[in-house]
Amino acid sequence: MNNLVRLFTTRDVLRVYAAYGAAILLFIIGALVHPGFASLPSVTTILLISSFIGMVAAGQCFVVLIGGIDLSVPWVLNAAAILLATASLGQNGRALYAILLTLGMGGLAGLANGIFVVWFEVPAVVMTLAMNGIVEGLTLGLSSGMTCGACASYAPPIVQQAVHGVFLGIPTALWLWLVIIIIVSFALSFTRFGRATYAIGNNPRAAFLAGVNVNLTTVALYVLSGVFSALAGILLVGFGGQASLGMGDPYLFQSIAAVVIGGVSILGGSGLYVGAAAGAISLTALVSVLLALNMPEYGRSIIYGLVILALLLLYGREERQ
């Protein structure tokens, strides 16, 4: 019994409670300033928007857990959205091919990130920054700045339904997110792969000596990050119908913020994905509250930053040496 209590009160788990507490608090504040904020349709919409951030945050969480970072999120996501629309030409028959192609593209970008970080010892910040530029240039160049014939294509109806469809009263995108939360959490907490991830984050050398294949695991994590960015791109184009330039830009800040709010250490080695998911919900709820208050863009930007700083000061501090 005592052990069970201890299991649910570790520092990591307490931070997850804090992140969910923040989300609930924001919903209550929202309901106070704007009646109907906590109504079911409103909450569902907020959760749906959170799910896009949550998908990207899953990939970001993986690489942050080993002390890395993925700055290539914005353009991998944007390229994915454009690739899905152009490859499918809006036809259901081509949807599966387009989805696989898009996820493969994300994985490839992640693979290149991982290979250069591991074997060429390029710092993760530099490598993923360069990859963001590479994907941006390729996307803009190949689509002639989104003026190509196929660029105006809509997402296949089946993909749009996958986001907007409702199953048991809940949008299907949220079911998908729930499945991802369960799979990612299980993979991180109960598999060899997950333990290897935390071990590398805590001490790569010790992990290596303990028999962890550090290089392969690192590459796999970057591949996953690329795939999750691409998945978010697919869902976003399904949500909005069409792809546009710059649609990935907000997701870098938001994915890192979600991970940090969720209590994942930016130095790596500790944190849970359920926390990052709560971080994504808190972030979206915060934006929604500010929008309900008619807060202009500059105010939202400032409050965004202040909230992250406050949370960092609350529990993101390094141990005193």
């Binding site: 913020a257 863009e297 500059y298 930053g305 501090r317 005193r320």
Partner: peptide, 23 residues
Amino acid sequence: LGRLQPIVVTLATLSIYQGLAIR
């Protein structure tokens, strides 16, 4: 003084300074 990670601190202040600039 805060012993926070530079990358997240400056990501947060980036957002704040950008907001002030637009103001």
